Computed example of a mutant assay.
Amino acid sequence: MMKSEKEVIQIIDKILQLIYDGTDEELNEAIHEMEASVPFYSKIYNMIFFSNEKLTAEEIYQKAKAEHKPILL
Rank of each mutant, 00 (worst) to 15 (best):
L18N: 13
E26L: 04
N28Q: 14
E35V: 03
L18P: 15
M34R: 09
A36L: 14
E67Y: 07
I31H: 02
V38K: 04
K3E: 07
V8G: 01
T56G: 01
I48A: 10
D13W: 00
K6N: 14
K43C: 00
F40C: 06
K54M: 10
K43A: 01
T56Q: 02
I60M: 01
A66G: 10
E35G: 04
S37M: 04
K43H: 05
E67N: 12
P39Q: 11
L16E: 08
N46Y: 11
A30W: 06
N46G: 05
K54P: 02
F50C: 14
H32Q: 13
I48Y: 05
M34E: 11
E59W: 08
G22K: 10
L27A: 11
M1I: 04
Y20R: 09
E53A: 14
N52T: 12
K3P: 12
Y61G: 03
N52G: 15
D21Y: 11
E5C: 05
Y61M: 14
L73Q: 01
Y41Q: 08
K63Q: 02
L18M: 08
A57C: 04
K43Q: 13
F49I: 05
K43N: 11
K65M: 13
E35Y: 13
D13Q: 08
G22W: 11
L55W: 04
E5G: 13
E58W: 06
A64R: 07
S37I: 01
L73C: 10
K14H: 03
P70E: 06
E58A: 09
A64L: 08
L27W: 07
M34P: 09
S37L: 04
A64F: 02
Q10A: 14
K43D: 13
E59L: 00
H68G: 08
Q62F: 04
K3W: 07
S4N: 09
K65N: 09
M1F: 02
I9Y: 07
E67S: 08
H68Q: 11
E7C: 06
E7W: 05
I12F: 01
T56R: 04
N46M: 05
I48Q: 13
L18E: 06
E33L: 06
G22R: 10
F50E: 15
E67Q: 15
S4M: 01
P70G: 09
Q10W: 00
S37D: 04
M1D: 03
Y61S: 10
I71P: 04
H32C: 06
I9S: 00
K3A: 06
N46L: 12
I48R: 11
E58V: 06
I31Y: 05
